[in-house]
């Protein structure tokens, strides 16, 4: 029975790593800047899920880190069943702050489209070099 649990756990971790690899491919190889932004968020979310996975416990029953009642007896069973709260505290700030940083990137993409008329990374490179040759910048 124990081996089944570890096997499923391993498959979960490996598929998360595969998602990270797919999103890195998207960030590096897709030419469209909007598509790069989508890949970046998928990367962030998967990294967050991996961090939360570090704090999980493979026991039954397992409980969230919220104290159910104000008594010393409840505290005993709570410490035995609750998951690790520290990774969760980090991920909450990472989700909301990462969103604010992504807003900044999105604004930069819109501004690039206004200035150059394209969001294709290859065309942007060509346009910048021609502008430099003409002395436009």
């Amino acid at each position: 029975m124990n081996e089944v649990i570890t096997f499923i756990w391993t498959v979960i971790i490996l598929s998360l790593i595969a998602t990270v690899i797919i999103s890195l491919y998207g960030i590096a190889r897709r030419p469209n800047l909007t598509k790069k932004l989508i890949a970046l968020t998928i990367f962030t979310d998967t990294a967050n899920l991996l961090v939360v996975l570090l704090g999980y416990r493979l026991i039954y029953p397992v409980a969230p880190p919220v104290l159910p009642s104000f008594s010393k007896e409840a505290l005993q069973t709570f410490v035995k069943t609750a998951v690790d709260p520290l990774p969760q505290a980090f991920v909450i700030t990472a989700v909301v702050i990462g969103m604010a940083v992504n807003v900044l990137i999105a604004f930069a993409i819109i501004q690039i489209y206004r200035l150059y008329g394209t969001v294709d990374a290859r065309k942007l490179g060509e346009k910048q070099s021609t502008l430099l040759k003409e002395g436009g910048i």
Partner: peptide
Amino acid sequence: AYYITPKLPQQTELRPLGEFYL
């Protein structure tokens, strides 16, 4: 996963820091 499974430790214990907070 079939090859890695026997080498992976089972994660059933809390870390001391997490236990302190709880």
